[in-house]
Amino acid sequence: MTTLAPVKPPDQERAFVPRILVFSTNNISDPGIDLAGSSHMTYSPGVVVISMPCTSGIRPSWILHAIEGGFDGVFIASDGDECAYLSDCSTRASRIVAQAQALLQQGGHQPQRLKMAAICSVCAEPFTRHVQQFGQALAELGRSAVAS
């Protein structure tokens, strides 16, 4: 069982729980993420999910909006090659990530605040591991420039 313990940076008193917005998909990654819950695994309560039909429908501007609004990171739980809609979904998703990272950089944010991994419909353990590792990486990166 994986846990994400709040990481306390040495120079700060309050425990820093990175806020992560996950873009998931209704048919592929949602079932995997739900399975983590029904298997009573655990990850940080700083992780919240918005579900879409398909990874290729995510607007890069939403990712910038999330970071500017105060999320420390955005994780795209993508369909990968399993997408039932688009055979080139992975290629499209990579393009969206590249565009979003460019937007982040233009806005003065580290591109590492965006991460993507394919999460399948039974990928409960990989999902918890990914968000835990991403949370740790974000904790090391420090708070987002805009987070209070």
Binding site: L21, I50, M52, P53, C54, S56, G57, I58, R59, P60, S61, W62, H65, A66, G69, F71, Y85, L86, C89, R92, I96, Q99
Partner: peptide, 29 residues
């Protein structure tokens, strides 16, 4: 098919997927 694959492709942000509109997702965030 409602995948939304055309949404981020539009340079004029002229396409919205019903139920997942730009306004809705932004408000949720």
């Amino acid at each position: 098919k409602g995948c939304g694959g055309c949404v981020p492709v539009c340079p004029d942000n002229a396409i919205d997927l019903r139920g997942y509109t730009d306004a809705q997702i932004s408000a949720m965030i």
